[in-house]
């Protein structure tokens, strides 16, 4: 039951991130086509793309944490006995960092709401964006924390490398 719910959440986050990427591509295309063919670019293109980029990245943070998707240097194979300690360390560092990010984004969100900060053209409230980032970073911190204590040990697939 919990597994199913977890799977649904992961699928939902993945879908949101994927659609954000699609939207980024479409907005660039529409903006460039509008500017060159119709002399009417999207005035809000830049600010919406920034929010979409943030959305795409932050929805994938919990997913990456869950799938051990962050780049890891697995140079020296650790002895079996040290695995639990290593999990505690890696999960703890991840949880601490994303915890800090969640906390500080929330703090900035409150402040931004107080100032009434908003994007220049559409007036998208900065506080909403920051709250979203805070929530997703918080979720990532929870995933890292669970891993620190050995959750999903069985399917800790090998991390994929890239850059």
């Amino acid at each position: 039951m919990a597994r199913a719910r977890e799977g649904r959440l992961e699928r939902a986050l993945t879908a949101v991130g994927t659609l954000s990427l699609l939207a980024l591509m479409a907005i660039v295309f529409i903006d460039v086509a509008g500017r060159n063919l119709l002399n009417s670019p999207l005035p809000w293109g830049t600010e919406v793309m920034e929010v979409l980029l943030g959305l795409m990245v932050f929805v994938f943070y919990p997913v990456l944490a869950r799938r051990h998707g962050h780049i890891v240097v697995d140079l020296v194979p650790l002895p079996r006995a040290a695995r639990a300690a290593q999990r505690l360390l890696a999960g703890g560092v991840g949880a601490a960092l994303f915890g800090v990010i969640a906390w500080t984004c929330g703090r900035q969100a409150i402040r931004s709401a107080g100032y009434g900060d908003a994007s220049a053209i559409l007036g998208i409230p900065t506080a909403w964006v920051l709250w979203g980032m805070a929530a997703l970073a918080g979720l990532s911190a929870l995933v890292f924390l669970a891993q620190a204590f050995g959750a999903w040990r069985d399917d800790a697939a090998c991390a994929d490398h890239g850059a």
Partner: peptide
């Protein structure tokens, strides 16, 4: 430090020019 973390988080993510990263990868 907390303020720095917030500033950096925003300014290394919500940056227009960085859209090239996902789009060139795509």
């Amino acid at each position: 430090a907390l303020s720095m973390a917030a500033t950096i988080t925003r300014d290394s993510t919500l940056v227009y020019t960085l859209i090239v990263l996902p789009l060139f990868v795509l």
